[in-house]
Amino acid sequence: MNVNDYNKAIDEYADNLFRFVVKHTKNKMLADDIVQETFAKVWERHEDIQAEKVKSYLFTTAYHCLVDVMKKENRSGTLEVIERNGTPDTSHLFDIQKVLHEALDRLPEVQKTVVLLRDYEGYSYEEIAGITNLNESQVKVYIFRARQALKTYLKDIELVA
């Protein structure tokens, strides 16, 4: 991958990467840092990376950065506070996508990761398995569990409404 490929990858995937990361961190500044770190790591090895595989490499790197950050940050401390502070009011709950994203925040991290990679980026189970270092069956099970949980959440909201 040359400089032009790298710059093109920034144009094409930086937004996707940011959305993926910010859904986990709930903190835009932290998400910015992770995206920058991800691209810096990719640049360090840009000569070894094929241009057509850069997206997968970016998400894999971002995921590992994310896991490291999650370990360093006290997930139940700093990030939770940010999450509560950043949570908007519930007047939008009948917007399906917003409800779904509310439900997404309640999922375990691994389920959130796989369902985001599946829905946001359209990755196959195999590709998600490669990014998250899981096997295909695990990915499929996590996605099915996540869908079931999201459906239950939607049903509860529907009943309330």
Binding site: F18, V115, L116, Y120
Partner: peptide, 25 residues
């Protein structure tokens, strides 16, 4: 309900610091 569980990304949520990341040839 299951058909509605597919998430869609918010296109307005973007990474604003792309220029700083780019490298000059």
């Amino acid at each position: 309900l299951y058909a509605m569980t597919q998430l869609q990304a918010n296109p307005q949520e973007v990474f604003t610091n792309k220029t700083a990341l780019k490298r000059k040839p």
